[in-house]
Nucleic acid binder design. Structure first.
Length: 227
DNA sequence: TGAAGCGTGGCGTATCGCTT
DNA sequence: AAGCGATACGCCACGCTTCA
C-alpha cells in the first residue's frame, strides 16, 4: 500500500469510529507508531481537522465534511458477490436496500471498472433450493427495532397452526436450519424465545422502547443447533 | 553507477493527564 | 510528588527509487 492510499485509509478509519488510538492505526496499516504520528500530521496539514483525546485516541472534528468515498474494483467485486448472497439468503426488504447501495457504488466507479463489473455481474449465479425462497420483508424492520431498541408486535403461526399474538423485544437475527429466526424477549412468556420468520404472519414496529434495560447478548442464547 | 530524495523504523526525550 | 501510559517529535540510519 502506498502512502497516499494509507493516508486515505486512515481518514476512512477515523470516520468509521468515534476514537482511534495511534496503536490501533499502526496495527491496522502495519506501520510503526512513529509513522502514524507523521501520517496524522500530514493529514492535518492537508486540511482535515484531526484532533485527539487522551486515553481515547484520534478523531475527525465533528461537522467536518469529507468527499464521498471511492471504491477499488476489487472492493466493488466483493460487494457484487455479497449482493448474490443477499439475494439468496436475505429477504425483499434487505435486497432492495442493498441494491440501492450497490447502485451508488457503481456510480462512483471509473467507466472501465463499471464495464468490468457489469461483465462480472452476468457471470455470478447462486443456485439455492426452493425452501430458501424469502417471500417476506421483515428483516429490515427487525434490524431497525434492534438498533432503536423498540418493541415489535407480531402475529405468529404456532406448530399447531394457531395464530398467536406476541409483543417482543428483539435482541438478534440468526440464520440456521435454512431459515431466519428472531431471537427476542417475549412479554407473555417473560423469557427469550426463538421466532422463525417464515411463521410470522404480520410484524409491526412500535414506538415503545424496550422494557428490559439490559438484555443478554445474542451469543448467550442457546440455539437448538450446534454447528 | 553513484548521488539525492523520500519513506520508514528505532531510539531517546519531552509533555500531559491520570493514578497511587 | 512519583510513577506510568499515551502522545509528540527530533535525530539518525537504512532501504528503495529516481535521475543525471
Amino acid at each position: 500500500m502506498n502512502r497516499v492510499d494509507r493516508l486515505f485509509g486512515i481518514v476512512t478509519l477515523l470516520q468509521s469510529r468515534k476514537h482511534v488510538p495511534a496503536e490501533r492505526i499502526s496495527e491496522k496499516f502495519e506501520i510503526s507508531i512513529r509513522t502514524v504520528y507523521r501520517d496524522i500530521k500530514a493529514i492535518g496539514e492537508a486540511g482535515i481537522p484531526v484532533s485527539f483525546e487522551v486515553n481515547k485516541g484520534y478523531f475527525i472534528v465533528p461537522g467536518y465534511f469529507t468527499p464521498p468515498v471511492s471504491f477499488t474494483l476489487e472492493e466493488a467485486n466483493a460487494l457484487l458477490l455479497s449482493q448474490s448472497l443477499i439475494g439468496g439468503f436475505g429477504d425483499r426488504s434487505v435486497q432492495s436496500t442493498f441494491d440501492s447501495a450497490l447502485t451508488k457504488i457503481r456510480a462512483v466507479l471509473k467507466q472501465v471498472d463499471k464495464e468490468k463489473l457489469a461483465l462480472l455481474d452476468q457471470s455470478i449465479k447462486l443456485q439455492l433450493p426452493q425452501q430458501l425462497n424469502s417471500e417476506f420483508e421483515y428483516l429490515s424492520k427487525v434490524q431497525q427495532a434492534i438498533t432503536e431498541q423498540h418493541q415489535l408486535k407480531i402475529s405468529y403461526a404456532s406448530l399447531k397452526e394457531e395464530t398467536l399474538e406476541r409483543t417482543v423485544e428483539p435482541i438478534g437475527l440468526v440464520f440456521y436450519a435454512f431459515s431466519w429466526h428472531i431471537i427476542a424477549y417475549c412479554h407473555l412468556r417473560k423469557d427469550y424465545r426463538d421466532f422463525k420468520i417464515k411463521r410470522i404472519q404480520t410484524l409491526h414496529k412500535t414506538n415503545l422502547p424496550f422494557e428490559i434495560s439490559s438484555h443478554i447478548p445474542l451469543s448467550e442464547y442457546k440455539l437448538p443447533v450446534n454447528y
